[in-house]
């Protein structure tokens, strides 16, 4: 793939390109299935087991299929004291969405995050790559409703 070739130029060896390649495979396959991991291994000519070891170390790679939109909600200390846990409960009540799970209609998946560096505007979340802060019981759903 052209994209991976470009990335390879930035590193002195093939292995250096592994993290970015895993992101690409995640984007292409939706999640890092065995097939996606094998594809990453093949693209960089790395042993597949090694690739899997790396992929499963990091929290932002997905190891099961995901909904159309990924909610990454922070519940670390600053967000917690500002009410993030209540938001987790609400997501369950409203969408039946459990941490680590996906809504039945495949619209949302929820991942509980450690600190996402938005403590001054807690609670905060990422939806896909969009950042949303100063969340509360009302605006949470106003925001989420924009994601179909």
């Amino acid at each position: 793939m052209e994209e991976i070739k470009e990335i390879l130029k930035r590193y002195p060896d093939r292995r250096g390109a592994l993290l970015p390649t895993l992101y690409i495979m995640q984007r292409e396959y939706g999640w890092l299935s065995q097939e996606a991991l094998q594809a990453a291994a093949d693209a960089l000519n790395l042993p597949p087991a090694t690739v899997k070891g790396v992929a499963t170390f990091y929290a932002m790679y997905r190891h099961k299929p995901m909904g159309r939109h990924l909610i990454q909600l922070c519940t670390n200390v600053a967000c917690m004291i500002m009410g993030a846990e209540r938001l987790v409960d609400l997501l369950k009540e409203r969408y039946g969405l459990e941490p680590g799970g996906t809504t039945e209609d495949g619209r949302f998946s929820l991942v509980i995050m450690e600190c996402i560096g938005a403590c001054d505007r807690a609670p905060a979340m990422l939806v896909d790559t969009d950042f949303h802060a100063d969340l509360n019981e009302q605006n949470l759903f106003e925001i989420l409703e924009q994601y179909k």
Binding site: A49, K52, G53
Partner: peptide, 9 residues
């Protein structure tokens, strides 16, 4: 052989 790895964290 690079056949095994540690998975997870």
């Amino acid at each position: 052989a690079y056949a095994i790895t540690v998975t997870g964290r």
